[in-house]
Amino acid sequence: MSFLDFFVVFCFLGGVVCSAVVALHPNILYAAVALIGSLLAVAGVYASLGADFLAAAQLIIYVGGVIVVILFAVMMSESIYKRRFLDGVKKMFLPTILSIALMLGMFKLLVSTNWGELRIPNYENTTIRIGQALTGPYALIFEYVAIVLLFGLIGAIVVARPNILKKDQDGGNS
């Protein structure tokens, strides 16, 4: 077993265990902390496939950005220890069926795909090709996603600000 095999198995196992904790742990803060582990495991899988840029982007965007925002929201919520967000068996019924269906579908895909010869990925510089793809064939989609994100930012500012605007108007009137 080479180090790469060991690393990939470690990432997959860690990812599965951490994802299970995210889904099943009654304490939302622990679920959020386990999400760090599962995102790191995904980054590890990317890195072992030779997609180094994607792995670092996963770290910087999800672990460094999104998780911090999630933790902020979780810490602001009241009584983390008392709240069980998995209350009742009823709420678990539909998600369980859906995820089992998804798992069966993926298993079928796994079996029916012709994987061909397994080979060690080619560790070459992916950054240049990502840049060329984003400014060439995928330029329109890239710009579209950027505009959606900009709308999201402006929307967040508008939602967060109404009180300040009102106060300013009152100050102007008096």
Binding site: L29, V33, I36, D52, F53, A56, A57, L59, I60, V63, G64, G65, I67, V68, L71, F72, M75, N125, T126, T127
Partner: peptide, 25 residues
Amino acid sequence: DLDIGIFYVMALASLVSLGILLGAW
């Protein structure tokens, strides 16, 4: 000597905020 050297440094440096927030809470 990674191909994404600077980007890797930025990514690892962003882990620090997680530790500070979790430790504080």
